[in-house]
Amino acid sequence: MRKKEFARLSSGGMQTKLFGIEMLSPTILVLLIMTARPLIFTLIYSFTNYNYLKHANKAADFVLFKNYIDLFQNEYFRQAVINTIKFTILAVVLEMVLGLLVAVFIHSLKRGQKVMRTLLLLPYLLPAVTVALSWRMMLSSNYGIINQFLTSLGLPYYNWFLDTKTAFGTILVIDVWQNVPFVFLLLFASLQSVPEGQYEAARIDGADALHQFWYITIPNIKNSLALCALLRTIDTFRLFEKVNVLTGGGPAGTTSTITQFLYNYGIKSLDFGFGSAGAIVMTVLVLILSSFYIKRAMG
C-alpha cells in the first residue's frame, strides 16, 4: 500500500515538474533566440574580417585573433577602456552613496514622503538623450544659464564639453544626477522591510543614529545594495547616449567610452568583425566587474 502511495506521489511530483517546464519553455526559447543567438554570432564574427559592404554577397574570411590584436594595439581603444572603467567606478560609488543618503533621509521624514519621492524620480524618468540635450543648453558657453550665473558672480565661464579638464567630470555629474533616483527608489523600498523593533532596541541600549545606521540599516539592506551596485555597473558600463550627444568622445578622447569607440570604428564603418571583437571584450569586462558584486551578494 505504501509503495503504491509513494509511486502516486512521485508521479504527481513529476507531472508538476513537467508542467513547470512546459510553462517556462516559451520564455526560455525567447531568451535563447534574443540573447544566446546574437551572442554566438557576435563571437563568430569577431574571428572574421566581416564587413557589410565588402562581404554583402560573399562569405567573410576567418582571421582568428587578428581583430583582438588590432583592438588592443589601438591607442584609442585602450584609452576608451580606461575611461569606461574609471567612469563606471566613480559613477557607481557616487550614485550608491548619494542614493543611500537620500533614501535614509526620505525614510526618516514623517510628512511629505510621497511628494519628495515623486520629485526625486523625475530625472530618472527622462530619456537619456533628453537629459543630455537639456544639460547641453544649460551649460552652453554662449547662452547657458549656468555660465551666465558664473559670469554674474564675476567668475570665469567654461566651455564645459570642449575643455579637457571639465568634459569628463561634467558628463559624470550629469549621469549621477539622472541615476541617483534609481538607487534611491530601490534602497528606499528595501528600507521599508527593516524591522522597526531593531531600532527601538538599539535606542534603548543607547545607540546613536550613526551606530543604528551602521549596525542595523546596512546589514538589513546589504543584498539590495549589492543588487543595486550590480545593475548600475552593467548600465553605466554601456554609457553611450550622453557621450555621443554631448562630446562624441572628445575632446582628445577624454570622454571616449568603449561603446562610443565601437560606434565610431565598428558600426559607422560597417566593420562588424572588428566591432564584434570589441563587443566581446566589453562583455568580458562587464562580467569581471559584476562578479565582485555577485560574489558579495552570494556570500
Rank of each mutant, 00 (worst) to 15 (best):
M1T: 13
R8N: 13
R8I: 14
S10E: 07
Q15V: 14
Q15D: 05
G20D: 02
E22N: 04
M34F: 15
T35G: 08
T35V: 15
T42I: 13
T42N: 12
S46H: 05
F47R: 01
N49K: 02
Y52K: 02
A56K: 07
A56T: 04
F62K: 01
F65N: 03
D70F: 00
F72N: 03
E95P: 06
M96D: 08
V97I: 15
L98I: 15
L100R: 02
V102K: 03
V102T: 14
A103D: 04
F105E: 04
I106C: 03
G112C: 10
G112L: 09
V115S: 08
R117E: 03
R117D: 00
T118Q: 02
A132K: 00
G144D: 12
G144L: 11
L153S: 06
G154K: 10
G154N: 11
L155A: 10
I171Q: 09
D175N: 15
N179S: 12
V180I: 14
L187I: 15
L187D: 08
F188T: 06
S190H: 03
Q198R: 05
R203Y: 02
A209N: 09
Q212D: 09
F213N: 08
I221N: 04
A226V: 08
L231H: 05
L231Y: 10
V243G: 03
L262V: 08
G266M: 01
F272L: 13
G275T: 06
I280M: 14
M282F: 11
L289N: 04
L289A: 08
I294H: 05
A297R: 12
